[in-house]
Design a binder for these strands. Structure first.
Length: 150
DNA sequence: CAGCGGATCGCCT
DNA sequence: GGCGATCCGCTGC
């Protein structure tokens, strides 16, 4: 299963009031303090899963929430999982459903799992657009949402 | 140990 | 553009 990312958001640790790691670690958020490449997957609104890739180093909380992407190899499987042929991964919950990612993968490494991240054709950092994060009620001023070129 | 509310989604108007 | 669904981890008593 391959995904090319189009939208991500950064979350920090103690210094980021919007982060789940803001008040230190709990059993659920412990993966956020692990090494780079670790997955932190949490349940959202009791229904959806949302996945982060931890940025490391160990002991420091930091991760990138995968908010959207385009499914490459494995598209038919993703369509079956989503029950539709469009809007497969244009949202953090949809992206996890399309990729088959659940909380069972939290704490594991991105490299060991079924998901591969593909780089887009345009790798010029200057084409990445930064905007405020969405869906949060605090620290809205930080432009830590990144839109990657399609 | 009970209550709250959220890093969402999809369907309705 | 607005709202209901639907959990459970965390906070505060």
């Amino acid at each position: 299963m391959v995904v090319r990312l189009t939208e991500v958001e950064a979350y920090g640790g103690a210094d980021d009031p919007a982060s789940h790691a803001h008040r230190g670690w709990t059993p659920r958020t412990l993966p956020m303090f692990d090494t780079e490449g670790t997955l932190y997957v949490y349940r959202s609104y009791g229904i959806h899963w949302c996945m982060n890739i931890v940025t490391g180093p160990r002991g420091t909380a930091g991760a990138v929430l995968l908010r959207g992407g385009v499914i490459g190899r494995g598209r038919s499987v993703a369509e079956a999982r989503r029950g539709r042929q469009d809007h497969l991964a244009d949202g953090p919950g949809k992206l996890c459903q399309a990729l088959g990612v659940t909380g069972a993968l939290s704490g594991s490494s991105i490299g060991e799992g079924p998901v591969d991240i593909e780089l887009g054709p345009d790798q010029d950092p200057s084409t990445i657009v930064a905007t405020p994060r969405i869906g949060i009620s605090v620290a809205r001023d930080r432009p830590w949402r990144y839109l990657l070129p399609e």
